[in-house]
Design a protein around this nucleic acid. Structure first.
Length: 247
DNA sequence: CGGATTTGACCCGCGC
DNA sequence: GCGCGGGTCAAATCCG
């Protein structure tokens, strides 16, 4: 079934239950000619809408496919990297995973956090519930991507520092190194965590959201088009007259 | 206008 | 002592 966002079923012919004679309308020859014209326009309109809908479906499938490919690629890459990290961690330190694709490794008082991000995203943000103030950035010899230096925003009372740099062989992997321990509570409270969890979206949610936005945009542009409104009204009247003629 | 970020200069430890 | 590289400072700049 095809239905626009403003509630008009494009495939199903509307049915009318005229149980008494009050619905019968006499139409003269001029009106009949007009009705024929409207039928033609109605056909055209229906074809146009079908075309738009087909295009929409095609785009939807295309987006779905792209999302699936991207998801597959990302998860494979994460799996591969995590197995490498696992290998490192079997020899020293302790390890810890979280559900956001973050790998944590603690060794000699320095905690390393590996977080997978978009390789094209140039931001160096690794959210950890604390607020940080950036105080420097440097390109190091062994890595072409710059290393960012952060101090805890509670400094100087809190001595914790953090260094963030992209992995040498995987630009999509951010490595954050933490030195010291915070002497205060995380700046992100429980409400914040809940709010963030609520905001979590699956890829399918994205597709549905994209669908909604697309349909809404199409509907809005059509709504703003007076020609469309007029033709739509004519089409509806045409259907009504068609039905009345049959019955 | 004030806080955050950027970026070049400076500091410091280490190896030669 | 000198050069190199990582870390830090602070003035300039950006941005809400």
């Amino acid at each position: 079934m095809v239905e626009t966002s403003f509630g008009i079923d494009l495939n199903v012919t509307p049915t009318f239950h005229n149980t008494d004679d009050h619905t019968h309308i006499n139409i003269n020859d001029d009106t009949a000619g007009e009705v024929n014209n409207m039928s033609l326009e109605n056909k055209k309109l229906k074809e146009m809408l079908t075309l738009v809908w087909d295009n929409n479906n095609f785009l939807k499938e295309h987006v779905n496919k792209l999302m699936q490919d991207h998801h597959l690629l990302t998860s494979n890459s994460v799996k591969r990297k995590f197995s490498e990290c696992d290998h490192e961690c079997n020899t020293s330190g302790s390890k810890e995973y979280d559900r956001q694709g973050t790998f944590k490794r603690t060794n000699d008082g320095i905690t390393r956090v590996y977080r997978r991000t978009d390789p094209f995203d140039k931001s160096m943000v690794v959210k950890d519930g604390y607020e940080w103030r950036k105080y420097g950035q440097k390109v190091t010899r062994d890595n072409p991507s710059p290393r960012a230096y952060y101090k805890c925003s509670f400094a100087p009372s809190c001595p914790v520092k953090k260094k963030v740099q992209r992995s040498v062989d995987d630009a999509g992997l951010l490595v954050a190194m933490y030195e010291g321990e915070h002497n205060h509570e995380s700046t992100e409270n429980e409400d914040g965590k809940l709010a963030r969890n609520k905001r979590y979206k699956s890829p399918t949610d994205d597709v549905e959201k994209y669908d909604e936005v697309l349909v809404e945009k199409m509907a809005n542009s059509l709504r703003r088009n007076p020609d469309f409104i007029q033709e739509l009204a004519q089409a509806i009247f045409s259907k009504v007259f068609e039905h009345i003629n049959i019955t």
